[in-house]
């Protein structure tokens, strides 16, 4: 893919705001209350960007933030996306889903929700804030009877990895899926990398646990190996950052992925340059991303002296 770039990404991640009602310790984008970036896309600019995604035949838009639902025009943007038939997946902290919001979300298709839960009550609330666990469980209970595809999303950390069996049960009890995300040294995670990252033993346990639960989703190249370092899922092997997917930040700047939002890796702006132009430029950045084995974001962000993904090496070298 690096030598023959796609004419457009297959999927993109679009952070629509850095504003959020929560202030999580490990937030990949460093979001929080009042953290909106100056110059976040206006409604009109956002709709123009959506139109260009449609023209480029981007198959799926995955929306994150910040908390997307704190944007006052967010439901309007969702209607614009789904009205064009673009598959849309929204990552939310689950605290803003009142019944009126869910009524409108349920009326849209194709639309999926991914609700964050980073542990059972003690671990989740220690990271995400007091009372958040109860709010998420309340949302899950109300989503259960609605026709909205829902998945719990857990960023796996040293502190919550032992909670995974019960989180898995909680998701199943409410008719939701479970998706695991790797904790990465991005945003506030860069400051807390050594505090939250998994130990080698935890990494091996996690990969073994996953191998017995094929319905747990990962969508993450870190999980292409099993606990023995053997390839268990070829489709997850390739990092698609800058080759199949990219990240658009709240002001429209384009990066290879959500975890590589560094100045040297920006490739244009969807308003000033147009998304097609920014995407075409990414091909020249891809070489830099490709220089690192495993996840480039972890390799670069963790300052590993060998320039490799140290957690991947933990499995391969043992």
């Amino acid at each position: 893919m690096a030598t023959d770039p796609l004419s457009a990404p297959v999927t993109i991640t679009w952070e629509v705001t850095l504003g959020c009602n929560l202030h999580c310790d490990h937030c990949l984008s460093g979001s929080g209350p009042g953290h909106e970036m100056p110059g976040e896309l206006t409604t009109e600019e956002a709709k123009s960007f959506i139109a260009e995604c449609d023209e480029m035949d981007v198959f799926q838009v995955n929306i994150g933030g910040g908390e997307p639902f704190v944007r006052s025009d967010f439901l309007e943007l969702l209607e614009e996306l789904t009205g064009r038939g673009i598959s849309t997946c929204v990552s939310t902290n689950g605290t803003q889903l009142d019944e009126a919001t869910l009524d409108r979300v349920e009326s849209m298709d194709p639309l999926y929700l991914q609700v964050s839960l980073d542990g059972l009550q003690a671990e989740n609330d220690a990271i995400r804030g007091e009372g958040v666990y109860d709010a998420v469980v309340d949302s899950l209970e109300r989503l259960e009877d609605r026709d909205i595809g829902t998945t719990l999303n857990t960023v796996v950390t040293r502190q919550n990895v032992d909670d995974l069996p019960e989180i898995y049960d909680l998701a199943r009890e409410h008719g939701a899926g479970l998706r695991l995300n790797r904790f990465r040294p991005s945003g506030r995670g860069e400051d807390n990398w050594d505090h939250f990252r998994l130990t080698t033993d935890q990494i091996k346990w996690l990969h073994e646990w996953l191998s017995d639960r094929p319905k747990v989703r990962t969508g993450d190249s870190f999980f292409y190996l099993n606990a023995m370092g053997e390839v268990r899922n070829e489709t997850l092997k390739e990092c698609g950052a800058g080759s199949m997917t990219c990240l658009v930040d709240p002001v429209g700047d384009v990066y290879p992925c959500a975890f590589t939002q560094w100045d040297g890796l920006a490739s244009g702006n969807v308003v000033e340059d147009g998304f097609q132009s920014a995407w075409d430029e990414i091909a020249s950045l891809r070489t830099e991303v490709d220089d690192h084995e495993g996840c480039p974001a972890v390799a670069i962000g963790s300052d590993d002296p060998s320039g490799e993904d140290p957690q991947l090496r933990a499995i391969l070298d043992d």
Binding site: V10, Q60, S87, C89, Y112, G149, T151, G177
Partner: peptide, 16 residues
């Protein structure tokens, strides 16, 4: 051509 199929959920279960 490219075909993207995500019948079950979304990009997590998608095939390209």
């Amino acid at each position: 051509g490219l075909v993207y199929d995500h019948e079950n959920y979304g990009y997590e279960d998608a095939s390209l």
